[in-house]
């Protein structure tokens, strides 16, 4: 069995219940698994929610995570695969004096745009594959961002 540590995306379909997120998060904390990012929202028109977890570990650990998740009573389905179509949002705030044309060009390159310009700064929003989100963050550093936030990954089976 491969013991190589790498990034994994696990998609979990759960019943919409108030305690379900703490069950999932508690499982990761209690068993020492790591969470790089976690997103959750109800699936439209269903009694289920979709949780997408980004974790780092070897295959054996991830297999165990999947099984442990499946043991939680409100968990319907757990999927872990390498070919998920992934998407993530990042927002960044830049100083008001930032060159708008250059910033706009950068945002466009990452499926984004300038969302608002106010006296507190310029907020840019992009949405892209998580690796490209990382590239955006690196590239935007020359504009000296005041603040950057990432949404965490959402993923869908192709």
């Amino acid at each position: 069995m491969s013991s190589k540590t790498r990034r994994h995306i696990i998609s979990v379909t759960v019943r919409n219940e108030s305690s379900v997120l703490s069950r999932v998060a508690g499982l990761f904390a209690g068993r020492g698994y790591n969470i790089e990012s976690l997103t959750v929202a109800p699936i439209p028109n269903e009694e289920f929610s979709r949780i997408t977890i980004e974790t780092i570990g070897d295959q054996k650990t991830v297999d165990q995570i999947e099984k442990q998740l499946n043991k939680l009573i409100p968990v319907l389905k757990v999927v872990e695969r390498e070919d998920f179509i992934e998407q993530e949002i990042a927002m960044a705030k830049f100083p008001v004096e930032t060159n708008l044309a250059e910033l706009d060009a950068l945002c466009r390159a990452f499926n984004g745009k300038i969302s608002i310009i106010s006296e507190n700064g310029i907020i840019a929003t992009i949405s892209d594959h998580p690796i490209r989100v990382g590239a955006f963050i690196t590239a935007s550093s020359r504009f000296s961002p005041i603040e950057i936030i990432r949404s965490g990954v959402v993923a869908m089976e192709p």
Partner: peptide, 11 residues
């Protein structure tokens, strides 16, 4: 009966 017991510690 518990799949998570299998391959947990021993292959």
């Amino acid at each position: 009966i518990d799949p998570s017991s299998i391959n947990k510690l021993v292959d």
